[in-house]
Design a binder for these strands. Structure first.
Length: 598
RNA sequence: GGGGCUGUAGUUCAGUUGGUUAGAAUAUCGCACUGUCACUGCGAAGGUCGUGGGUUCAAAUCCCAUCAGUCUCGCCA
């Protein structure tokens, strides 16, 4: 080795010990005859001193050294002189006095400064990702991610799970997300697809008699970008035989709880994880992935207002819409401008608008007619406003926000508003990881565009046992054995107890509108396997990136991936995607079509 | 596929109502300096104002197109 120790070790070693360090020059402070270097390696930073009185040759060499040069120094650990300690550094009470120095490599001036405090345009960071990752913050996140995956592996290995790799080149199936395709050279006009998840493969492993499987699995989905999405991502994929929902939930809880305790002990986490049904989650939060770090629960006003004379309410209710709202505490001071901002915000989710009632503080501490400010004040009697306020537990000083419209858009808008107000009112304790299980998902939802039933989870999810008779009659009312683990408003993991018999699986495909031929071509391998004795089984899959994001307090998925793509799915480092040669295309029996500029 | 914001020195940004030589900080380069750690002091260099077109006597500034980054709606079983 070119080094005997890491920089961070410095403070733990005995004074006077002779050591060799190697790393990058993070900073140089030249005081003439005395030069200080901050030497950075993966572990951290150590101060190195070069004194002209000790060795003039070395001192001359050190004069030429610049940031990001790679050097090796040997020297002796010593205490810093009194008054020159630096409490900001873990190694700030000691330093290395240099007796020998080798320049291992020089560096040109980097395109941005390598320290944690900078903000640099992301395309530049990604183009020079190898420099970006030299920042301590970035390498710490990589280490955190490593520790997460390591913990998961050790946790599951201890419980006799087998880690099994499944193919990356599999078969395209049109349901779900768009596939990434890989052309076959040996079979003209035929393609492999990259897995969106190893779903069918892990179920086949269950039929194989592997009773406990897991995989840190790479998944690929060719969907449009979002700030928390990448075209390829990693999931903890796990599946077990002979289990019921409770077994998966308790295993998942134990895993995530212990993982948090071990890896980010400073985070607050509640155990047992609260559980909420899908229906309750929608009712209270307007979404199936509620952020439970703050209250702001939604309340339904549809029944209360069913006899209202106010035209807007009447119309919504007659059209089978809903009216719902919540109270933003101590927000009555919101100015017209703030509220207009909220209205615009609400409209981006498709709602027609946003009704608001500001209740000013009164001397009597009661809600008085004069203390109400609201655009609906002149259309709705005061008693009705009082009823609304009472239903929403609103008090003087609060701001009531109400959305009316179709169920879907109203809930979507309110859940977004809820998060927005929590942010604005600073109601979120960022040190909390609020894990919650959401259970009893509906099995199907109606897709009005293609006029078909769609699986809410996926088509292999089993319906709840006690509801099988409703399967044909009212598919919308049937719940499933599907569950999600939600944390701070993010879906962290999702899974289900699967269907493990052929007849049931075929019945579900039928309801989903698959033709016999489609079933045959896409799922025959699974259905045939079920003919040979499939064990009851179920599992869960959790996103690794999202988990690491939660643990490392970043809302940028690119921060938790070593070499991510931009939000347009471009890699600025390799400049991919890229053109390939005509020879490569010919070999794959492909031709490209130039896109017209219409 | 739709919408918002951004693009000016290596980097992060300012740039007024369209008007003289486009500024600051930091990084870089040079000199000085023995206790700094955002070292300090003095000096220097550094610009296709994303790109293309248009309006104008005059464009970083106004208009159109385009590219890139980011956020977002749809989409992501």
């Amino acid at each position: 080795m070119l080094k005997t120790n890491n920089c961070i070790d410095l403070s733990n070693l005995t004074l006077g010990k002779s050591i060799i360090l190697a790393g990058w020059v993070a900073n140089r402070r030249d005081h003439g005859n005395l030069i200080f270097l901050d030497l950075r390696d993966q572990s951290g930073i150590a101060q190195v001193v070069i004194d002209a009185d000790i060795n003039e040759e070395l001192h001359k060499m050190a004069k030429s050294i610049r940031n990001e040069w790679v050097i090796q120094i040997s020297g002796i650990i010593r205490e810093r002189p009194e008054g020159s300690e630096n409490p900001k550094l873990p190694t700030g009470y000691v330093e290395v006095i240099t007796h020998d120095l080798t320049i291992l490599n020089e560096s040109i001036t980097p395109p941005f400064e390598i320290n944690d405090d900078i903000t640099v345009d992301e395309s530049i960071r990604l183009k020079y990702r190898y420099l970006d990752l030299r920042r301590i913050r970035m390498s710490n996140i990589l280490a955190l991610r490593h520790n997460v995956v390591k913990f998961i592996r050790e946790f599951l290995n201890k419980r006799n799970f087998l880690e099994i790799e499944t193919p990356i080149l599999i078969k395209s199936t049109p349901e779900g997300a768009r596939d990434y395709l890989v052309p076959s050279r040996l079979y003209p006009s035929e393609f492999y697809a990259l897995p969106q998840s190893p779903q069918q493969l892990k179920q086949l492993l269950m039929v194989s008699g592997i009773e406990k499987y897991y995989q840190i699995a790479r998944c690929f989905r060719d969907e449009d970008p979002r700030s928390d999405r990448q075209p390829e991502f990693t999931q903890l994929d796990l599946e077990m035989s002979f289990v019921e929902q409770e077994d998966i939930l308790s295993l998942t809880e134990e895993l995530y709880f212990n993982l948090v305790k071990e890896i980010v002990p400073h985070k607050k986490i509640v155990s047992p994880f609260p559980r909420i049904t899908y229906a309750d989650a929608i009712a209270k939060y307007g979404t199936d992935r509620p952020d439970t770090r703050y209250d702001l629960k939604l309340h339904d006003l549809t029944t209360l207002l069913s006899n209202s004379e106010f035209n807007i309410f009447k119309k919504i209710i007659n059209n089978k819409g809903i009216i719902r709202g919540f109270t933003a505490p101590n927000a009555a001071h919101y100015k017209r401008k703030d509220i207009d901002g909220l209205i615009d915000f609400a409209k981006t989710y498709g709602s027609q608008g946003l009704m608001w009632i500001a209740i000013d503080e009164t001397t009597s501490n009661n809600i008085e007619e004069d203390s109400i400010r609201s655009p609906i004040k002149n259309h709705v009697p005061f008693t009705e406003i009082l009823q609304i306020a009472s239903e929403l537990n609103a008090n003087p000083g609060d701001l009531i926000l109400i959305v009316a419209g179709t169920e879907k858009i109203t809930n979507l808008t309110l859940s977004a508003l809820r998060a927005e107000m929590a942010n604005r009112l600073d109601l979120i304790d960022t040190s909390v990881l609020a894990f919650t299980f959401v259970t009893d998902f509906p099995l199907f939802e109606w897709d009005d565009e293609i006029k078909k039933w769609k699986s809410l989870h996926h088509p292999f999810t089993s319906p709840s046992d006690d509801q099988l008779e409703k399967l044909q009659i009212s598919p919308e009312s049937i719940t499933s054995n599907a569950y999600d683990l939600v944390c701070n408003g993010l879906e962290c993991a999702g899974g289900s107890i699967r269907i493990s018999n052929r007849e049931m699986q075929e019945k579900i495909f039928e309801i989903l509108g698959y033709t016999n031929q489609e079933i045959q071509s896409q799922f025959q391998q699974l259905l045939t396997a079920f003919d040979y004795g499939a064990p009851p089984h179920g599992g869960i899959a959790g996103g690794i990136e999202r988990l690491v994001m939660l643990l490392s307090d970043t809302d940028n998925i690119r921060d938790v991936i070593a070499f991510p793509k931009t939000q347009k799915f471009i890699d600025p480092l390799f400049e991919s995607p890229s053109k390939v040669t005509q020879e490569q295309l010919a070999e794959l029996h492909l031709e490209t079509i130039e896109k017209d500029n219409e």
